[in-house]
């Protein structure tokens, strides 16, 4: 790298020594390198199969490159189911998330212990992956879209509450002071001094949660939560890759369309 500083004139004052690189940064980089090596080593990481077994992958990819388009329409009911699952879960999950976000912000929750309990509950909720919730609810209510909906609801509460409570923390405190000075109760205060301020952001998170739910549909279905993912799972276990590929391409289009739709709606909210 050419990083030399050109020195034109003779230095009059003694040149300062190059500052020593900061110790925490160096330690951090070394630790990161060691951890990377250790992680790769302990799982036997190697890219060699990429060269050796490429032909295995190519066979699958070839099948993928000739998708069975009509299959997309044959499973139209699964598409409807996927979108319906995502909608129901978003409404309930993001709705409850709003409630929890008020409890998880110091601005709106004046009870110390309830605030801490809510924060704790939400971080535990967020620490489990969506798949774990699907597995739990499949065990509880059986295979089907109900399990998928319930799992997504729990998953969505965590995300919506976190994003929204961060937004609440950052609102203008003036109106809060005003309604406090008028003797308003906790709920009215949250509804009128806080909600109008966070509404555009919240609606944006609402749409984001919906997008996330559509993307999760594959995972949900594979674990038994209904929708298009279930179809992928069945076709995959039959090695019907041409059907799987048609669905993946269609899912890609659906995700893009929903992305466009939510961008359009977001622009309208602001």
């Amino acid at each position: 790298m050419t990083s030399q500083v050109t020195t034109a004139s003779a230095p009059v004052t003694p040149r300062p020594k190059k500052p020593a690189p900061s110790i925490p940064v160096i330690v951090g980089l070394v630790l990161a390198a060691v951890f990377t090596w250790w992680a790769g080593h302990s799982m036997g990481f190697s890219l060699r199969p990429l060269i050796e077994n490429w032909s295995n992958g190519w066979v699958v990819i070839e099948q993928f490159l000739s998708p069975n388009w009509p299959f997309i329409w044959r499973v139209w009911d699964a598409w409807v189911e996927t979108i319906a699952i995502a909608i129901v879960a978003t409404f309930i999950g993001a709705g409850l998330g709003l409630l929890f976000s008020f409890m998880a912000s110091r601005v709106t929750n004046r009870s110390g212990w309830l605030y801490r309990a809510t924060r704790w509950f939400l971080s535990v909720l967020r620490s489990l992956p969506d798949i774990a919730y699907v597995l739990i609810f499949v065990a509880l209510v059986g295979v089907g879209s109900l399990a998928g909906i319930l799992a997504l609801i729990l998953f969505n509460i965590g995300i919506a509450a976190k994003l929204t409570s961060e937004t609440i923390d950052a609102i203008d405190r003036g109106p809060l002071e005003a309604v406090d000075a008028a003797g308003s109760g906790t709920w009215s205060r949250a509804r009128w001094a806080v909600l109008p301020q966070i509404l555009p952001n919240y609606l944006s998170y609402f749409l984001y949660v919906f997008e996330l739910n559509i993307r999760s549909s594959v995972v949900i279905g594979i674990a038994g939560g209904g929708g298009i993912g279930q179809v992928i799972n069945v076709q995959f276990s039959r090695f019907a890759y041409e059907n799987v590929s048609a669905i993946v391409v269609a899912l890609f289009v659906v995700v893009l369309l929903i992305d466009q739709l939510s961008q359009y709606l977001r622009r309208r909210f602001v």
Binding site: V80, E81, A84, I85, I87, V88, G144, L146, I149, G226
Partner: peptide, 13 residues
Amino acid sequence: GAAWLSNAKWSEI
């Protein structure tokens, strides 16, 4: 509509 189209067996909740 979504709750109905999702084919969820709500009674099993």
